[in-house]
Design a protein around this nucleic acid. Structure first.
Lengths: 342, 342
DNA sequence: AATTCGAATGTGCACGTTCACATTACTCGA
DNA sequence: TCGAGTAATGTGAACGTGCACATTCGAATT
């Protein structure tokens, strides 16, 4: 009969709990994992012992024995962007609420080698699933070709079939923006697109093209940007020479803001000479001058859906099918009704 | 001699490597952990076997055996803010480069209960160290009172002694901003501060007060904001009635931008009627109208330092002592020289 | 050639959990 | 009253690594 009055250095283990509750360690394990065949009175005794000892199962041991880690990997390419950041925060919250931890991995670049290495690293950490927030076509191609065994859910893919449920209808959002401009009487609407490889860039451009086509207006060749305000700034200065353009739909708010800056420097007034609308509704959009019209997407909700979806796959349940998230048009000063042409 | 042509379901273990290299598993372990007493030829044989089998040590097993996880916890309160986000990305990169993974935990609120629970959660994940990005005095008090065994490094603490080396000199930054305004001839400078509990808010306010005092100017009672552009907007409308104020130093860019919005709505022109300077240099600051003067802090460098510092503590080495990071004053349109008073 | 000592390597167990299987307790019907 | 069948619990062995200790090897010293 060992004297047990000593101060314990180590945290309590499952066997300590078992001893205190006068059961076997396996019974404790059953209580923890909600096995059905446990007498209510026994369960209570175990739970009491757990509380008394402030016992928490050791995740490393659990992972080793069960090869389940309760860890979700986030593979991201573009942290710093507003949308990505919001989504990540939401994912982390949602995951914690369900007992999962998050391991983030930010891609240094999106070469196939880097992507492959990143995925291998996450896989090696034995994550139970991966959420991909790297909306570049290339990334999906690489990951698809890797023959992974861990489930992967990606935000904003519009290429595959099943990932649709974790996407916002960006094409629709872009259409809403462009149709809004057309509704104001603009017929010469230019699009500043995102980089070629980006899925979101493609969807938004597609929305632009569709809206123009349906309104029977000639679509202008889009300009490829890189999402940054600096690029928008540059483009604005270049474009101000072209008097034929009366409205611009920029693929994100940062480029829209830079664009307005460029216009301003060149003497073109927004919205009087040219209207500008962005995409994302970043927090400053409502406060800059002129306040920026834009399209809002609930990135946080997207993140939560990704977690729900992924956990369903992990637990081999049917993943709930969501409709694509509907963006919201936010009209502000940068697209007020312009004087109709004489 | 076992036939080994079978397809393996499980990844290779340390014993598989040992068998292939004709050594004991312990020798493999020594090679992995860079034990000095290994014959070069043996090491090479082991390394070859590792490459052949694409072996990677199992983190869960390693954590269980050594109770070291190679995991760093990030406790954050304010993701979404530009500075925090930049720092987190940098931390993650720096940590990965040194073989550590990151577990992020975003505080839902900063009540002592939530903080305690968060820290306990991280501790229970057996993180080797924690980086705190929750610059509220309260948070440190709670954590300090917890008697933690894992090393904690926090960004931007100015209360304790040793954490100084992972901080930017925000007080200096604030002084630079205010002295800049004073240099332009302003004597009635108002400060829009951050929330009371925030260390950064206090440092920036202190810088304001010091600069005013040294210039022999009366410091106006600061207004407490909440970091958001919306608050700045509100404050701007309120303040525009006060004609005595000719310059405002806002504790961050978002409030500065909102403030300019409020002024604009009330008919006060920036910088002609009132100058505004912010803090952070968020990406849009250079592109809004008027372009925003501000103070730039290298948050990414701060994050890298935090990692360096923390790993040194974990490895029981002397932590390198950095000087506080020096902020940089960025002068733009919002604080151009104003007409001197008649 | 024997002795010594450090370098190089091997052996077995511990870490804390889950899994497969074994055992005991209880319920119900004949 | 007994057996069958299921509910409830227990036993021992993994999982893959690091640690403490034991052993062997080799060269230098006497």
């Amino acid at each position: 009969m060992p004297a047990n009055g000593e101060a314990r250095a180590r945290p309590a283990s499952i066997r300590d709990v078992a001893r205190l509750a006068s059961v076997s360690h396996q019974t404790v394990s059953r209580v923890l994992n909600e096995h059905p065949s446990i007498r209510a009175e026994t369960r209570q005794r175990v739970l009491d012992a757990i509380r008394t000892l402030d016992y928490r199962p050791n995740p490393a041991a659990r992972a080793l024995a069960s090869s389940r880690t309760n860890l979700l990997g986030i593979l991201s390419a573009t942290v710093g962007e507003y949308g990505t950041t919001s989504a990540i925060v939401a994912i982390e919250r949602a995951a914690r609420e369900r007992g999962y931890s998050i391991s983030t991995l930010n891609l240094p670049d999106s070469t196939p080698a880097a992507i492959g290495e990143a995925v291998r690293l996450l896989q090696h950490e034995q994550v139970d699933g991966i959420i991909v927030l790297a909306p570049q076509v290339r990334v999906y191609n690489v990951i698809g070709g890797l023959g992974l065994t861990v489930p992967v859910v990606s935000l904003q893919t519009s290429t595959g079939g099943d990932a649709e449920s974790v996407a916002a209808d960006q094409m629709l959002g872009a259409r809403m923006a462009v149709e809004h401009l057309i509704g104001l009487g603009h017929s010469d609407v230019l699009h500043i697109a995102g980089p070629q490889d980006w899925i979101e860039a493609e969807s938004r451009m597609r929305g632009y093209l569709d809206a123009m086509f349906e309104a029977d207006l000639p679509a202008l060749p889009p300009i490829r940007g890189d999402w940054t305000a600096d690029f928008g700034h540059f483009a604005g200065r270049e474009l101000s020479a072209r008097r034929d353009i009366t409205a611009v739909f920029a693929a994100n708010d940062l480029m829209a803001i830079g664009l307005m800056h460029g216009f301003r420097e060149a003497g073109a007034r927004v919205p009087d000479d040219v209207c500008v609308i962005g995409f994302d509704d970043i927090p400053v959009a409502a406060h800059i001058w002129p306040t920026l019209s834009t399209v809002r997407v609930d990135f946080a909700e997207l993140g939560r859906r990704a977690v729900t979806h992924l956990l369903a796959i992990i637990d081999r349940q049917d993943a709930p099918v969501f409709e694509m998230l509907r963006p919201e048009l936010i009209v502000r000063e940068s697209t007020t009704r312009r004087a109709t042409r004489p």
